[in-house]
Simulated assay, not measured.
Amino acid sequence: QFRIGALQDYEYEKAWGNPKASEWAEMYMQNGYIVDPMPTLKYTKEENRKIQKINSQLNMAVKEMNQKWILGAVDFNKTYDEFLKRLNEIGLQEAIEINQKAYDRFVGSSN
């Protein structure tokens, strides 16, 4: 229920909530848009050191550009490719690889 925005029992909230919200929640559930959250991944010491550094820089870059786009300070279409380039320079691909290794270990340990 928390994945569709319900803080309490969904049926209880449905009784007094906005009918549109209930309609959207039903659509999400019927169409399979609600997925299980990612597990908490465990990293090696070296992976943890790298991922923390990369994630802090990625988060800062994303927040900065989101703010600029939302405020209209820069044009989204003109700056998006440069933004992706910046994320890759920070280490986006390395972060993906680290997370994939940690996820593969998680899946392997649950079999």
Rank of each mutant, 00 (worst) to 15 (best):
W16M: 05
Q93T: 14
D9N: 15
R86Q: 01
G72H: 04
S110E: 09
G91P: 04
A6S: 09
L87D: 01
D75H: 05
G72I: 07
N88K: 15
E97G: 02
D81C: 00
L71E: 14
K101V: 05
D104S: 14
I34V: 15
Y28M: 10
S22Y: 06
L92Y: 13
I98V: 09
V62I: 09
K68S: 04
N55E: 12
Q57R: 15
E97P: 01
F2I: 11
N59K: 10
P39C: 10
I51E: 02
A61R: 11
K20A: 08
Y43R: 07
E26P: 03
E89K: 12
K50C: 10
G91I: 03
E82Y: 04
V62R: 04
D9C: 12
E64S: 08
N111P: 04
Q30V: 09
N99Q: 11
G32P: 03
Q93V: 13
T44L: 08
V62Y: 05
K50T: 06
Y80H: 13
L7C: 12
Q57H: 09
N31D: 02
Y103Q: 10
G5R: 03
G17V: 06
R49N: 04
D81S: 08
G32I: 02
Q57C: 15
K78V: 12
W69V: 12
L87T: 06
G108N: 14
K14N: 09
Y80D: 13
E82H: 05
N55K: 10
T79E: 15
K53T: 05
K14E: 11
P39N: 05
A15G: 06
Y43W: 07
I90N: 02
K20G: 01
E23C: 03
L58F: 02
A61I: 03
A15R: 15
S109P: 00
I34L: 03
P37A: 07
R49P: 00
I51H: 04
M29F: 07
W24S: 03
N111Q: 13
P37W: 02
E82D: 10
V74P: 00
L87I: 02
A6M: 10
K42D: 03
P19G: 04
S56L: 06
Q1C: 12
W69M: 14
M60F: 06
N99W: 00
F76H: 07
K68H: 06
E82L: 01
I98N: 08
Q100V: 01
A21W: 01
V35C: 01
K78P: 02
T40Q: 13
E94N: 09
N31H: 05
V62L: 00
I4C: 13
P19V: 12
L87N: 03
E47N: 03
P37L: 06
Q57S: 10
K14R: 15
T40S: 11
M65I: 08
S22W: 08
G17R: 13
F76R: 02
T79V: 11
L41R: 06
D81R: 07
M29K: 13
Q67G: 03
